[in-house]
Design a protein around this nucleic acid. Structure first.
Lengths: 114, 114
DNA sequence: CACTTACGTTAGATATGTCTTAACTATCTT
DNA sequence: AAGATAGTTAAGACATATCTAACGTAAGTG
């Protein structure tokens, strides 16, 4: 998952991912959408491939890329699992703090040893 | 959203996020969970703060951090919107291709034998 | 007030990423 | 076989990230 998160942290790679999410595309066709050189795109594609965010299919001299929906699904699951019960508690706490803004240390007695 | 994605691309920052997602925590307390120095943690916290993934609250000399559920919700929405109709079409296409010819995908990240 | 506690910020070293140019590989065409 | 086409890999320049050590700051304490 680390590789996935690092891969999507790059704006161009997200754009590539959107392109090959629409439909299968050859490497050169992808490169046409950008200002940077083809080798740079090739390197981005390698990172996406190694993160299993895209798959490659060879057809003659061309290499056709497409998004890998499974990995995207895993990413979605991963992000959703950051939404744990603990977070829901924090959400409630934030609400309470806003409502009674002047209340100090009403609900937090976590550490009191100086 | 770019700041959010870059922020969560770092493993330590994700771990910090999990810690302050459980409950509010002081900076030093967070640092105790890691091998790296306190300044390093402070820098990570700054990045998380600037991405609005955590909020800071001062109490005496301490600074208490907690996760910001709203930003996490936005992240979740963002990731889910990568799941467009186009992707569903690719999913179907992949199924059809597998059924028809059982083509081997070219995910060769295991090419280390010299 | 000086002193401690809790943190942040700065400066600089080292590691990682991203790009370009040049060279390379594989496939198709003639 | 030679050349054209499509794409990757390699080498190196430059930018960005991440860490440590040293210093700075603000709030509490004797």
């Amino acid at each position: 998952m680390d590789a996935v998160l690092k891969a999507i942290a790059e704006p161009r790679r997200r754009q590539i991912l959107r392109l090959v999410g629409e439909r299968e595309m050859a490497a050169g066709e992808i490169a046409d959408h950008f200002d940077i050189t083809r080798p740079a795109i090739s390197q981005h594609l390698k990172i996406l491939r190694e993160a299993h965010l895209v798959t490659e299919r060879r057809e003659g001299t061309r290499r056709l890329y497409r998004a890998e929906p499974e990995t995207l699904a895993e990413l979605r699951t991963f992000v959703e699992e950051f939404w744990t019960p603990g977070l829901q508690r924090l959400r409630d706490l934030a609400e309470a703090t806003e409502t009674a803004a002047s209340t100090r240390a009403a609900t937090e007695d976590d550490k009191e040893t100086p």
